[in-house]
Lab assay of single mutants.
Amino acid sequence: MDALKSAGRALIRSPSLAKQSWGGGGRHRKLPENWTDTRETLLEGMLFSLKYLGMTLVEQPKGEELSAAAIKRIVATAKASGKKLQKVTLKVSPRGIILTDNLTNQLIENVSIYRISYCTADKMHDKVFAYIAQSQHNQSLECHAFLCTKRKMAQAVTLTVAQAFKVAFEFWQVSKEEKEKRDKASQEGGDVLGARQDCTPPLKSLVATGNLLDLEETAKAPLSTVSANTTNMDEVPRPQALSGSSVVWELDDGLDEAFSRLAQSRTNPQVLDTGLTAQDMHYAQCLSPVDWDKPDSSGTEQDDLFSF
């Protein structure tokens, strides 16, 4: 819950932080000083300027060897085509990944977070970031790969997607708890209302004896509580940590079903599988986004697919 609360507080303090972009060759504004600060901008989305290598189908939802083989196929196909790589912007948030063309600003792909089953910074092609997700059109699994400016960037994108998945799962947990509370309150309110109706004398007997209905007592009954809980029953509950912020979080049926399955089948359902080692994760978390744009010590960066 700490990640969720800190993310909400950060967004309320400075929503404009989320509009910064990394990996864009110096076009961005001043960047936060450390990885923790940038992680807090996830709610509205972190932007990464990358190059799209392509996509291939895979048979399993996750796995280092599986993704490595898929990336190898994608890279080989991209090299064989001889075409310049498409420059894209990857927007990562707890909602998922939005992929747009840098030149036309046209939407290429919009992947809900619950469809993503794996992401990684490839070991062999260490400047490549990739994720595996279920197609929104059918049940097939797709591996999408992107060329980053350097290994640090690939690791940073991988960690960002993993963190977005974690925050999304926490949102789901909060929403589920809130819905259970509202359902319980609604049920209790309905029981109270039913009890009051059972003990209320029939209207005919009131008229016969000349008694008047006590409207004041009726007004004191917990009807307002019942209506408050039943009027918006169809509205999706939102985490309290975000009250007053500009973010509107809505959970669709697909996300609810997917996270429910994860909660039942996995020990740590909030953790998205990645190909990063503990050492890689520690190294990337210690980086400032400013470091992502620094040239690798191995030599001059080449803006070309064939540089790796």
Rank of each mutant, 00 (worst) to 15 (best):
D2I: 06
D2N: 12
D2L: 06
A3Y: 07
A3W: 04
L4P: 02
K5I: 13
S6H: 14
A10T: 10
I12Q: 07
R13C: 07
S14N: 05
S16W: 13
L17K: 13
L17I: 11
L17R: 15
A18N: 03
Q20R: 15
S21H: 15
W22C: 03
G25V: 08
R27D: 11
R27H: 03
R27G: 13
H28S: 15
H28R: 05
H28V: 14
D37V: 12
D37H: 10
E40N: 15
L43N: 15
E44T: 15
G45K: 00
G45D: 15
M46E: 08
L47C: 08
S49M: 15
K51N: 09
K51A: 00
Y52T: 06
G54T: 10
M55Y: 10
M55T: 13
M55Q: 10
T56L: 12
L57S: 03
V58D: 07
E59Y: 14
Q60F: 14
Q60E: 06
Q60P: 15
P61M: 03
S67R: 01
A69Y: 14
R73W: 13
I74G: 08
I74F: 10
V75G: 03
A76G: 04
T77K: 15
K79A: 10
A80K: 11
A80S: 08
G82R: 15
K83R: 09
K83Q: 09
K84L: 10
K84S: 15
L85T: 09
Q86D: 08
Q86A: 01
V88G: 14
K91W: 01
R95S: 01
G96D: 05
I97S: 15
I98D: 07
I98V: 10
I98M: 05
L99W: 12
L99A: 05
L99C: 10
L99F: 03
D101G: 14
N102M: 09
N102Y: 13
L103M: 11
I108Q: 03
E109H: 05
S112F: 09
Y114S: 05
Y114C: 15
Y114D: 02
R115Q: 09
I116W: 13
S117R: 11
Y118D: 02
Y118M: 04
C119I: 07
C119V: 09
A121E: 10
D122E: 15
M124W: 06
K127W: 01
Y131Q: 06
Y131V: 14
I132Y: 10
I132A: 05
Q134I: 15
Q136F: 05
Q136P: 15
N138V: 15
L141I: 09
E142G: 15
H144K: 14
L147M: 07
C148E: 04
T149L: 11
K150P: 01
R151A: 02
R151Y: 03
K152S: 10
M153E: 03
A154N: 02
A154P: 02
Q155T: 05
Q155M: 10
Q155L: 14
A156N: 01
V157I: 00
L159M: 10
Q163S: 12
A164F: 11
A164R: 12
F165M: 01
K166G: 15
F169K: 01
Q173I: 13
V174T: 03
V174P: 03
K176M: 11
K179M: 10
K179G: 01
K181C: 12
K181V: 04
D183L: 04
D183Q: 00
K184D: 04
A185M: 13
S186M: 03
S186Q: 08
Q187P: 07
Q187K: 07
G189E: 03
V192R: 02
V192E: 02
G194E: 05
D198V: 04
C199A: 10
C199V: 03
P201E: 00
K204Y: 04
S205N: 10
L206H: 05
A208L: 00
A208H: 01
G210R: 13
L212Q: 06
L213Y: 07
D214F: 02
D214R: 02
L215K: 09
E216I: 01
E216Y: 15
A219S: 02
S224V: 08
T225M: 12
S227P: 02
A228P: 06
T231D: 11
N232Q: 05
E235R: 15
V236E: 06
P239Q: 12
L242A: 14
L242E: 01
S243H: 04
S243P: 09
S243Q: 06
S245E: 07
W249F: 01
W249I: 06
W249Q: 07
E250R: 04
E250Y: 04
L251W: 04
D252I: 04
D253F: 06
L255I: 08
D256I: 05
E257D: 04
A258D: 00
F259Q: 07
S260A: 04
R261F: 07
S265A: 00
R266M: 00
R266L: 00
N268A: 01
V271L: 15
T274G: 02
G275K: 02
G275N: 06
L276V: 00
A278F: 08
Q279A: 04
H282T: 02
Y283W: 13
Q285W: 14
C286L: 13
C286S: 00
L287P: 00
P289S: 07
V290W: 07
V290C: 06
W292R: 12
W292C: 12
W292T: 00
P295E: 01
T300R: 01
E301P: 06
D304P: 02
F306Y: 03
